[in-house]
Write a protein that binds this DNA or RNA. Structure first.
Length: 169
DNA sequence: CACAATGACCAAT
DNA sequence: ATTGGTCATTGTG
């Protein structure tokens, strides 16, 4: 299937660290297929936009990084071919309110499989759409838990929502 | 198909 | 800090 990729950079919040983050996204004809971030290492030009879905995404990301509770429609995601259980877990995560957290166990229960807290962690790690499938709001029963691309990102994403769980001081 | 191995876990030693 | 218990997914034969 044809996949169209875009990328753009925006500055880190000043309280977090200097520099910019690089956001990259992939679209299919069905919708947003994946979204991820990394630290922008060298200067880049933002992609030229081919269609309006891309502008909507970029605006939403910027708003979120600015602390606003903006969301995208579930139906605008392309989750085709993903394991059923993963999709259930991802959907369950979206029930966690902006700025709040739930444990892996609680999310597993929301997903209809209360004892699958560990499998739930795997589903989190496989989340293809960072930020809008809010895996950063899922924490361990005893602490902040893990994060695929590094705990700093989890702290940042929670931080922009006003939740500073796990940050020191 | 039948396994074994792998995890961003959990609760109780 | 260690351990035994959980479960869905993925890889291997």
């Amino acid at each position: 299937m044809a996949e169209h990729e875009i990328e753009f950079t925006i500055p880190f919040p000043k309280w977090h660290r200097p520099g910019r983050m690089l956001w990259q996204a992939g679209f299919t004809n069905r919708g947003l297929r994946w979204l991820r971030v990394s630290v922008a290492v060298k200067a880049r030009k933002d992609s030229k936009l081919a269609d309006s879905r891309e502008r909507v995404l970029i605006d939403a990301v910027k708003a979120r990084m600015n602390g606003d509770n903006v969301d995208l429609d579930w139906d605008s995601f392309d989750l085709e071919g993903r394991p059923d259980f993963h999709v259930r877990v991802w959907k369950a995560m979206r029930q966690i309110p902006f700025g709040k957290v739930k444990t892996y166990g609680e999310v597993a229960e929301l997903a209809g499989s209360p004892m699958a807290f560990r499998a739930c962690g795997q589903a989190c790690g496989n989340n293809p759409i960072l930020l809008f499938i809010p895996c950063h709001r899922v924490v361990a029963a005893n602490g902040i838990g893990g994060f695929g691309c590094g705990l700093e990102w989890k702290r940042l994403l929670l931080g922009v929502e006003g939740n500073f769980l796990g940050s020191k001081a």
